[in-house]
């Protein structure tokens, strides 16, 4: 099977290793990965600020770039949600309406693709470890891929998943929200940290670059003793392919 891989902007700017691991996972399960070198960003930065015309340009660029009928695999629920849901809204009633519909139904969040389409089984080769999980808001509510992400995590035999008390509460990232409303964002991420620290785990795992940048940065600032890792990097390491 052939698929397109969409690296996302935050992924390719800050999580190169995790993206490589995402591709290794796909390859490991027999998928041939096509990487379009001209790819950029899904358009969320302008979309969430209400700049719809600017966003349409970025969206159209992507839809045209990923033109063959292969699945588009996105290692982020936030960007996947944008591409599978919001592109349709953006182009409703325009000449690109059908194109958006066709494109959107081929977009998959990576854990959904692994769990629901490929139905993979993961053989855990790592040592026993305790982790917790943060749900990205758009993965949870737009792409709806969180149940797959957690199912994959839970399937690892040596990993104990301790759930956060307020797992589904936003970490305060919200893209440009974090710099437009820095004080509120700060208060939000501090609550998230408290919850994470209360769980006494070694790792915080998340499936989205934005939340990870936010939470990792905040944990580092207070010199907390919890490591963070992108879900796909964690999975790849656990099954011994990275």
């Amino acid at each position: 099977m052939k698929v397109y891989f969409f690296g996302t902007c935050i992924g390719s700017a800050a999580f190169s290793e995790s993206l490589i691991c995402s591709i290794k996972l796909l390859q490991h399960f027999g998928v041939e990965v096509i990487y379009k070198k001209d790819q950029t960003c899904c358009g969320q930065p302008s979309y969430n600020n209400g700049y719809y015309e600017e966003t349409k340009k970025a969206a159209l660029f992507n839809m045209q770039l990923f033109s063959e009928p292969y699945p588009v695999i996105v290692p982020s629920g936030s960007c996947a949600g944008m591409m599978m849901h919001d592109y349709i809204t953006l182009f409703e009633g325009t000449e690109h309406e059908n194109m958006a519909k066709e494109f959107s139904q081929r977009v998959y969040e990576l854990s959904d693709f692994l769990h629901k389409e490929l139905k993979v089984t993961l053989e855990d080769k790592g040592n026993p470890v305790k982790v917790t999980w943060h749900s990205n808001c758009h993965a949870l509510r737009v792409a709806k891929s969180v149940s797959s992400s957690k199912a994959l995590l839970k399937s690892l035999s040596n990993v104990e998943l301790v759930e956060l008390e307020k797992e589904t509460t936003c970490c305060g990232f919200g893209g440009t929200f974090s710099v437009k409303e820095p004080e509120i964002s700060k208060a939000m991420v501090e609550s998230k940290l408290q919850d994470i620290l209360n769980q006494k785990v070694e790792y915080l795992i998340a499936g989205d670059g934005g939340c990870l940048l936010n939470i990792t940065g905040a944990l580092e600032k207070i010199n907390a003793n919890v490591k963070t890792m992108y879900l796909y990097e964690f999975l790849a390491k656990r099954i011994g392919i990275a």
């Binding site: 390719s12 800050a14 999580f15 993206l19 700060k186 991420v189 501090e190």
Partner: peptide, 12 residues
């Protein structure tokens, strides 16, 4: 203000 300087890795 509340986060360490972001560790970027754009070598992808």
């Amino acid at each position: 203000t509340c986060r360490a300087y972001p560790k970027m890795d754009a070598s992808f």
